[in-house]
Design a protein around this nucleic acid. Sequence first.
RNA 1: GGGCCCGUAGCUCAGCCAGGUAGAGCGGCGGGCUUUUAACCCGUAGGUCCCGGGUUCAAAUCCCGGCGGGCCCGCCA
Length: 495
Amino acid sequence: MGSEVELRRAIRRRLIEESVNPYPHKPKYSPTPVREVVRSPQVGATVAIAGKILGIRRHGGLIFFDIVDDGVRIQCSVSRGEVGEGLFSFFENYVDLGDIVNVYGTLYYTRKGELTVAVKDLQLLAKALRSPPVKWGHRVLDPEVRYRKRYLDLMTNPHARRVLEVRFRTIEEIRKFMWSKGFIEVETPILQPIYGGAAARPFKTYVWALDAEWYLRISLELYLKRLVVAGFNKVFEIGKNFRNEDIDVEHNPEFTMMESYEAYADYNDVMKLTEELISTVAERVLSTTVVEYPLGKELVKISLSPPFRRFTIAEAFREFAGIDIEGITDDKVKELLARYSISLPGGYDRGRAIVKLFDRLIGREHLIQPTFILDFPQSSSPLAKPHRSKTGYAERFELYIAGMELANAYTELNDPELQAEYFREEEARRAMGDLEAHPFDWDFIEALEYGMPPTGGLGLGIDRLVMVFTGSTSIKEVIPFPMIKPREFQNQDSK
RNA sequence: GGGCCCGUAGCUCAGCCAGGUAGAGCGGCGGGCUUUUAACCCGUAGGUCCCGGGUUCAAAUCCCGGCGGGCCCGCCA
């Protein structure tokens, strides 16, 4: 068959027969990053660059081609008159779209004013057996291919690359910010005998050495608090959480969180930290604190400058739904649950009912600008400390931006007896069929029994923050390799 | 979990409603062209029409089932 791969395999073989290595170990001309070459180009200067050929325009004795190096494009030209028949026909016969090459030449501007490298010598660095599926920057692949073969999307789609650059830069700036505040970065186990710290279904795994069923963590919380117990006053971790739940535009089963814990702080301090973190990181990564986010057909401007709006959950109900959630009877609450067909696994509980109603009625439309929702019902927050002045409530806040929950934070519960009581309540609900109820963690209780200082904790969803930063409406966009169902491997050209 | 839409050449898609020999652009290959940039011009090859069943003289097209994907809804961040 004359398929592309077969034709290119033949070229590879011919190169080897002619003693040209199609995959040399190093470039002959030590390359300068194209990013640096284009920053302050000097006409006539000799440069050596390297990159992937993602465009070729042949004009007989003159060939223009584009190479992309680390996401930056530059045009090169090969002239038969300048390089001679040998190199010119080598390029024509052996070099294809997708190949990675080392170019040595001089800078000039074409008639159309484009900076171009006039090739004097060229070395093949890696022969590509497949050409890129689309031209660089010109067409977007089918969504399935974009996510399934993400490297092709990132190779050919500068926007996709830009989104991930923002992600990686965001993580970098979050680290710097946290370090600057005196937090130290730590690591805690991903494989755990008991999961906890959030309401979610876990992934199970099996540890051969212990002959035991373990879990992938659903949050970072309980181990980070153990470090606070151990005497580390300001810790944070950036890492993956795993939740065995649905995949959609806001959820990927593995996602990245930053969690921080600070001794002697409460949730008011954590609110300040959160505002400062988000605005500072936005300013450093995006050079602005105003982002645009597509909602429906509109691009909505979102300001990430502090202070963020604050509503207690009761105020939010009054303001956005016209409901006096504290004043109404349980019957009325149940009526609302029924009206919006919300079920409560584990039986009716007013607090958790209110949170479910909140998610259903208020979340999406009203919480576009950054908004702290504070003081959640205690029964929905088993790891948070009861409110200092409002009975039945916990000192907890969630941060919403663009209708998405981005952060969750508490004044941490450090009373081991109360924590044990809350765990028992969770266990009871688990027994009644709530798969997301917390399992009882005796080891964690014992740790608290040794004494944990009053502590403020924060969990921040990195993926969603990057969605806000980049105006992405799908979490898949901001994850290098989002979860997608595997397909049977089909590669007819492979042997 | 429920609903809607999609799956055809390497890529993007038309053809499907109204069944009758599989199409375009880009890309590939061959030729031309020394300042183009989604280069251009001429020629040419390239298909498990996602898979499996059914209806029919005849299915890419109609029906049923499955697989994969996207979006919306419900739920967890």
